[in-house]
């Protein structure tokens, strides 16, 4: 599973000219998922922060404030996950020291952000697909955040603490 990479395309790279948020660059990718009669456009936004920190957001393009929480009912998590992982792999090729942080949004039916269903899926997906010789998956079930960190960082408690604190600030900016 998570091997069916869809054709994706880099749409644009933005520099943070407006100064909203502390990110420096943003890469926006797009791809389409076809299942049966449906065809949906998905957007993946990769943002770069200080000290090789990255966040990855993805959603189906829809005019709705809950775009991260909606279900598309395409039942194509394998293709979606594979494509997002391929985009992350491309980012790592450009920056081998990259760390990644994700928030697994709650479904509309879920009342808390604790241990959401997306969190369970994404942690399992990352555990499966990340080379354990290079990266480690770390997770907070309390607020459904997941981190992919290089081994060197995990072995230093102070650096790990700093990275998590920095990601907390980043997530507070965005959500």
């Amino acid at each position: 599973m998570f091997n069916a990479i869809q054709h994706y395309r880099l749409v644009q790279r933005n520099r943070n000219r407006a100064g909203l948020g502390s990110w420096h660059f943003e890469w926006i990718y797009k791809f389409f998922l076809h299942t049966g009669t449906s065809r949906r456009k998905y957007l993946v936004e990769v943002r770069q922060y200080d000290e090789h920190l990255y966040t990855v957001d993805f959603y189906a393009k829809v005019h709705n404030v809950n775009r991260y929480r909606l279900r598309t009912h395409q039942h194509a998590a394998g293709k979606l996950g594979a494509t997002v992982l391929a985009i992350i792999a491309r980012t790592i090729q450009q920056d081998p020291q990259a760390c990644f942080g994700f928030i697994a949004a709650a479904m509309l039916t879920e009342t808390t952000d604790e241990n959401t269903r997306r969190f369970q899926l994404y942690t399992r997906m990352l555990e499966l697909k990340i080379n354990p010789a290079r990266y480690k998956v770390e997770a907070f079930a309390e607020n459904s955040t997941i981190f992919v960190l290089p081994h060197g960082l995990v072995s230093q408690p102070d650096a790990l603490q700093n990275t998590i604190t920095r990601y907390d600030q980043i997530f507070r900016e965005v959500f």
Binding site: E127, K136, E142
Partner: peptide
Amino acid sequence: RKLLELKPV
């Protein structure tokens, strides 16, 4: 908070 380091599969 508890940060869980997960075993690789």
